[in-house]
Design a protein around this nucleic acid. Structure first.
Lengths: 370, 370
DNA sequence: GGCGGGGATGAATCGCGGT
DNA sequence: GACCGCGATTCATCCCCGC
């Protein structure tokens, strides 16, 4: 905070991030948040099942000559970020599996000390349309101190705990994408930037690892989410952005932001996630065996459990709900209450097993005594 | 599966994993699951960077040396894993932020093609006792095909969907730690292995990316979780383990496992393996009449059925797919879902007739018992 | 004004087999 | 190896529009 006068605080530096970083003084910044190009390497076009086109990221700024060129670029900007970082400061970088492993290895090679990797679990990710992979439902953030010896980094442990119903904040964060009114639009209504991050994500980062008045640097400023959240939370900010069009959008955006009195209120957009237990989890946990036969409470209908969590009756196969409905000829059925397994000679509704799993997951200590 | 006779299937190879891997033939393994060490000692040299307390330049150099040795080790075993992997096989590696970035970068450098990174969210992680970081509540798995061109890798998409209540399986998995009765104990009651993984995690990996009879290789076998789950799920397995004590525990453990014997229970939902039914068969079987008019669900477009299985609309003729695409002006169309016929005054998708044919031809014997 | 259906969309490394 | 046709494949969310 003391040397902020020499810094271009509250400004967007237009230019190459490595060159602009070189002009900043040593150990002058409290937090770096970086959302670098991911080097996605997308192939042709991807169509949704309804034949509309997925608007993938194929901008020139995301294309590199190969891993070698990408690594060289990252070594350069990460080394400069380390140089400008105070010893009490920390680095945050976000990425996906396309780039985060390379970034993480370089972060370690440069002498940073990783404190956590944090997973942003997306509440509403884009599905996998071709059924060839798992839904890519998360991105990874790396949180690192300047060096192994930088033990006095800023971490607002109690603020994070307060944000999480007085339990320690975990390394997996469940937050929605940036959509709707928050998503900046161009004049033609299209998205102003292809990879705008949600303010809730930046708010959690800044509340966790910075203090009011701290200088937050974002070397890939884009449309200025970092600056907007920093201003709102009473932090100072510096942005670096190559594209003057993005920078103009960011300037207008940040000008409209007002600082808040109650910083924690901003991050409370954190809805409590409903713990969902799919039927398949009961099989994975050994509470139900593959091949076991389930039945309704009056033993009128029977169905066999498959390893993948589907049921098979004489005429139907599918989920516990759909097979339950089908055997009864009913339009719908709550399979959790309908189907039973035999335990010690007694029928037990499978919902009982689900409750066991929920209890185990919410209160791990209880499991130890079990 | 065909060359399994040359492989040491169902055995634990005691020795250095790189040497033992070298003895296995090329392209002979269907899945590799690896849980490598991240603080390993090679040749008596202690590589853990935080055990060396040196100042200044020496510190950076020493740290680099530590990572270098670890990287070299990983390049060696990962290269061998890639050599023994079939083109239809995939690699799984699990790690934490200490090592997963280095592993992931090497995986990419060796030519593997990352399909997903998967986050194991721990239901009951150890808290952070000193309040200096976020609760380290997850580990990361990397799932990769042999190369970018290996497009025929095994992925049981429908089985994963079935396990997740008929929604796509996401890249974040919520599973408990290995505790309680599942956790193997030494004679003195202490845990037999420090990093034993839960069987539920391995079960999901094997159900997702292997088939019954496949050969699953684990180069860091430990106390044999991979072997135990593989046996239970009807997969074959090969383990490599340096420590004969761990291997002995693993052998006893696996001997007690019983395979799920019911093939129906192990069968996985897999729509893709259903027999192909040409549209013309529906006409031959009398389910659709030549000259009948088909239409889309909202009756915006119509086409007449020709005896040879082609459709004719006002402006187009061809297959159900090409005419469906043409009338909509879409690049492609699944004619089976698009076109409907009228039956008892109601529109019926022609896919329903195809399902009838498949059910009739597939397993008439099974229907007898119904 | 409230409600419900339809459409749009999000950092995406997203066929396959027969000829 | 290239070409070509079959035909498989989506979840949460928000906005807009019509009733």
């Amino acid at each position: 905070m003391t040397d902020g006068g020499r810094l271009p605080v509250g400004r967007i530096l237009i230019g190459d991030c490595i060159e602009e970083l070189r002009a900043l003084p040593d150990r002058s910044v409290d937090l770096v948040f970086a959302d670098p190009p991911y080097n996605l390497q997308l192939g042709g076009e991807l169509l949704r099942p309804n034949n509309t086109r997925v608007d993938g990221v194929d901008d020139a700024w995301d294309r590199f000559g190969g891993f070698e060129a990408y690594d060289k670029f990252c070594r350069a900007w990460l080394a400069e970020c380390r140089r400008v970082l105070k010893d009490t400061g920390t680095l945050w970088v976000i990425g996906s599996y396309h780039n985060i492993f390379r970034v993480g290895a370089i972060v370690q090679d440069l002498g940073f000390w990783i404190l956590n990797d944090v997973v942003w679990r997306k509440a509403n990710p884009m599905p996998n349309f071709r059924g060839k992979r798992f839904t890519n439902a998360h991105e990874t953030l790396i949180w690192a101190a300047r060096s192994e010896d930088s033990r006095r980094y800023t971490f607002n442990y109690d603020a994070m705990k307060a944000l999480n119903d007085d339990q320690q904040m975990r390394s997996d964060w469940f937050l929605p994408l940036c959509t709707g009114a928050e998503r900046l639009k161009a004049e033609d209504g299209s998205k102003a930037h292809p990879t705008q991050k949600p303010e809730s994500l930046l708010a959690r980062v800044l509340l966790a690892a910075s203090r009011p008045g701290d200088v937050v640097l974002d070397p890939f400023f884009g449309t200025g989410t970092t600056g907007a959240v920093a201003k709102r939370l009473g932090r100072r900010w510096i942005g670096i952005e190559r594209d003057s069009g993005y920078a103009a959008v960011a300037r207008r955006r940040i000008a409209e932001v007002e600082a808040v009195d109650d910083p924690l209120a901003l991050a409370l957009a954190n809805r409590r996630e409903q713990p969902r237990v799919p039927f398949g989890r009961l099989i994975e946990e050994g509470l139900i065996r593959p091949g076991e036969v389930l039945f309704d409470s009056r033993r009128r209908w029977f169905a066999k459990v498959r390893a993948d969590g589907h049921l098979i009756s004489d005429d139907h196969k599918g989920s516990i709900h759909s097979v339950g409905a089908a055997v009864q000829g009913a339009p719908a059925c709550n399979g959790w209450m309908f189907w039973h397994a035999e335990r010690k000679g007694m029928p037990v509704a499978i919902d009982v097993f689900r409750q066991q799993l929920r209890a185990a997951g919410e209160a791990p200590a209880a499991r130890v005594g079990a």
